[in-house]
């Protein structure tokens, strides 16, 4: 009972602390996106979800990318979200069903800038995305490319270099412009810490692998390819 009271009190606090940032976003955003850390960690929530969580957006995205994407939102997840609701049987293999993949709301410049500002305030706790999770050594990028395509099987679910790869995970062809390197390193070490039940497996990667993969992804879409 005491636990429950505490939980309720904490819940209110959590709600209040993020409310100010979330308030600046159009209320429609929260109908598809969690803007505060959800307390419901059940699989049911994943099944009912209409869009990816944004409660740690400020630690995940590069702001410039947000501003331009919100004005011209191209698909990131080739099979929409969640993929398993938008696929159909094809001749040789299953295919995304384009009729089920909706276009994202588009914002004008001013609204996109305001939304990006509000989203950048939504930071992950320090222990979820530790500053310096990526140690910054870009020399590992080539080994990272090999790990991505071959040794760790990432390409099975993600499009990487040249847009080649699987369709059930987000495209990473422009990961470097879209995502913060510390986020990449933290996410690939344990995706379920961000998103319980998400269908990216935890590969039990060693830190060396994590650093190399992050270096590889951080330079994708940066114009250097």
């Amino acid at each position: 009972m005491k636990g429950l009271l505490l939980a309720v009190a904490g819940l209110t606090a959590a709600f209040l602390s993020s409310a100010s940032a979330a308030d600046k976003l159009d209320p429609s955003c929260s109908s598809c996106h969690a803007l505060a850390k959800p307390t419901d960690t059940s699989l049911d929530r994943l099944l009912a979800r209409k869009g990816p969580d944004l409660w740690y957006a400020g630690s995940k995205f590069n702001k410039d990318w947000l501003v331009s994407w919100l004005q011209d939102p191209k698909h990131i997840r080739p099979a929409g979200y969640p993929y398993f609701k938008n696929i159909k049987k094809g001749d040789k293999h299953d295919e995304p069903d384009p009729s089920k993949i909706l276009a994202h709301p588009k914002l004008n410049k001013a609204d996109a800038e305001a939304a990006a500002d509000a989203l950048m305030v939504l930071k992950a706790p320090d222990d979820l995305v530790p500053a310096g999770a990526f140690k910054g050594d870009m020399k590992g990028a080539r080994m990272g490319a090999l790990a991505f395509i071959k040794f760790r099987g990432c390409v099975g679910c993600h499009q990487g270099e040249n847009g080649e790869g699987g369709l059930s995970g987000p495209e990473l062809t422009d990961a470097g412009t879209r995502l913060q390197p510390d986020f990449i390193a933290a996410y690939i070490s344990d995706p379920q810490r961000f998103d319980p039940h998400i269908w990216m497996p935890t590969a039990n990667l060693k830190d060396l692998d994590i650093q190399r993969l992050t270096a590889f992804l951080a330079q994708l879409g940066q114009g250097g390819k």
């Binding site: 398993f84 293999h93 790869g165 699987g166 369709l167 059930s168």
Partner: peptide, 16 residues
């Protein structure tokens, strides 16, 4: 995602 709706190894990721 890989084993497919038919469970026979024909998921959307198969081409890659």
């Amino acid at each position: 995602q890989c084993h497919g709706l038919n469970r026979n190894g024909t998921g959307i990721n198969v081409p890659s």
